[in-house]
């Protein structure tokens, strides 16, 4: 029971409480969130009368779905955040709105995440997960050429990557608010690389289930699936194989993350020792002149490192995809 609570609190590592982000950082992400949601409200079919109950109930569904968990030996449990799943079922714009409502309700009703930092939390867990999940998922579905196991792979990778992006964004905001990049990035990314496996597995299984039972509801997905692939369920072998690949990538990245951030810390240390930190202001960051960033070189290079790392992961996943598809093309269907 204690361990379960602990695991839930680790997942809450993405719900930033008030007081941890500086006011300019909170304000910047409020602006981004408001802009994105304003576009989303326009995009979602003008939000026809039919959509409003659907969106509301879907937000409640994601909220309830986050309670469904499975125990992992060793005391933790696998959870769902749901951004990628919502995006692949409803489309990215609708999913952004749904997830924004989920995160807002959690903050307003349960104090999971603060109010001043709500903009950042909605952006990280709602908008970013929805869009990254959508992009990664649909790109992989196309790349897999409509195979039924492709749906599972796309769901898994989309779930995992979306959670990693949320963790990276959270880390960026914390680092911009003055926390040490050398500790925040490895800790956040390491933990979420593991938690993301649960996210990916649940997303993949849920997608496969919905496509097998009600293919009409997952029209965005069934459109890119073969006709008979949509009807059949997904074999357990495919799920296990894809999990293996995903685990390997996740473990690799988790191992690499301390290495990646060792160097920026050195830069930061040097900058502090030499006292050129204040003078070395990058013009691009004068947008936020009100706060000083301890170790300007550190965070930026770590952020770049994080993004590069993510691109590498995606490139590997894409490469594996192409390889697998090449093999598949030779065998007659």
């Amino acid at each position: 029971m204690l361990f379960e609570n602990l695991a839930q609190q680790i997942l809450l590592g993405l719900h930033i409480p008030d007081g941890f982000l500086s006011v300019p950082v909170s304000a910047l992400w409020w602006i981004l969130t408001i802009a994105a949601l304003a576009v989303a409200v326009r995009q979602v079919d003008g939000l026809s009368e039919r959509q409003i109950p659907l969106m509301g109930v879907m937000a409640a569904f994601i909220f309830a779905g986050q309670m469904l968990n499975f125990p992992i030996p060793g005391g933790t449990s696998g959870h769902l955040l749901g951004g990628a799943l919502a995006a692949l079922l409803l489309g990215p714009w609708a999913a952004s709105l749904v997830m924004a409502c989920v995160v807002a309700l959690q903050a307003l009703l349960f104090q999971d995440g603060g109010l001043l930092v709500l903009g950042a939390n909605i952006f990280n867990m709602g908008i970013a997960t929805a869009f990254v999940g959508w992009w990664v998922g649909t790109a992989l579905l196309r790349a897999f050429g409509g195979q039924r196991w492709g749906l599972v792979a796309a769901g898994f990778v989309a779930g995992w990557v979306s959670l990693m992006v949320a963790a990276i964004l959270t880390s960026v905001q914390l680092v911009l608010s003055g926390l040490s990049a050398a500790i925040v990035f490895p800790a956040m990314l390491g933990v979420h690389a593991v938690i993301g496996i649960g996210e990916g597995l649940i997303t993949a299984a849920a997608l496969a289930f919905v496509v097998a039972t009600r293919p009409d509801l997952a029209s965005t997905l069934t459109g890119s699936l073969g006709t008979d692939a949509a009807r059949r369920g997904v074999g357990r072998g495919a799920l296990a194989g894809i999990t293996g690949v995903g685990l390997a990538i996740a473990a690799g990245l988790a191992l690499l993350s301390p290495l990646a951030s060792g160097d920026p810390d050195g830069l930061e240390r040097v900058a502090e020792d030499q006292g050129f930190l204040e003078r070395a202001q990058d013009p691009a960051y004068n947008v936020l002149p009100d706060y000083t960033i301890p170790g300007l070189d550190g965070p930026i290079s770590t952020i770049v490192a994080g993004i590069v790392g993510l691109l590498i992961v995606f490139a590997i996943a894409y490469g594996v995809t192409l390889l697998l598809r090449g093999n598949k093309a030779e065998t007659p269907r």
Partner: peptide
């Protein structure tokens, strides 16, 4: 049960919950 199997079970529960929610929203509408 392996972890993958457990995750599959939860994934199917989430999928079921989605379908029930979706159908409920249609009834509500």
């Amino acid at each position: 049960g392996s972890i993958v199997w457990r995750a599959t079970v939860v994934g199917q529960m989430v999928g079921t919950l989605f379908l029930r929610s979706y159908e409920r929203s249609e009834r509500i509408y």
